[in-house]
Amino acid sequence: MSLPAADVPSDEMRLIVRAKSGDAAALEELGAFCRKLAYVLALQLTGNREDAADLAQDTMLRFFRSLRRFDPRRPVRPWLYRIVRNLARDRLRRARVRRASSLEELTEARGNDLPAAGPGPEATASRWQLQSVVWRAVQELPVHYREVLVLRDYHGLAYAEIARILRLPRGTVMSRLHRGRLMVRQAVHASMQTGLAGEEAADA
């Protein structure tokens, strides 16, 4: 899972070195930073806040337990994401029913409440609607498609990084990502058609 030292930001490397030596401020900074990352990924994988918070806490326990063995020349994210993903897989396997929240529930905001950015309120509302439909579709994907899509589209990781985190061949990452995106596309189309049919019925 190693990357060349040059790929690791020097700030991150320094922070890890300080944290490993027991520097309380560095530990605190690293903990706060990683906890946020872990929480967001856990939320994207599980779909609900309670599970995500539990997973983030468990991830941080494992993270600090093995920090002493961690090589600071390696990037921290793949290591952290791998812990989150493994814990999320365990939890999802144990759970009989998965409770995925909608984007509205998670952000407690509607398209109309969001600040108007870009072309105008209509575009903002339409973007929000699409984000919401995509989120729901991603939450309904089988987990092996969801984790690839989340790491690529929500976290912007390269295929090689995803392959390292999930321990998959790069080609499998590409296939799963494509298949997952096709499923999301299908769900978006179905949702848009339902929306249009509903609007037409309301107008009639």
């Binding site: 952000t107 973007r127 995509v134 589209d153 929500y154 189309h189």
Partner: peptide
């Protein structure tokens, strides 16, 4: 379609 879906995902902020 894939471009729009990816952009929607990339710009989704979570609290």
């Amino acid at each position: 379609d894939l471009r729009r879906i990816r952009n929607a995902a990339m710009t989704t902020g979570l609290p």
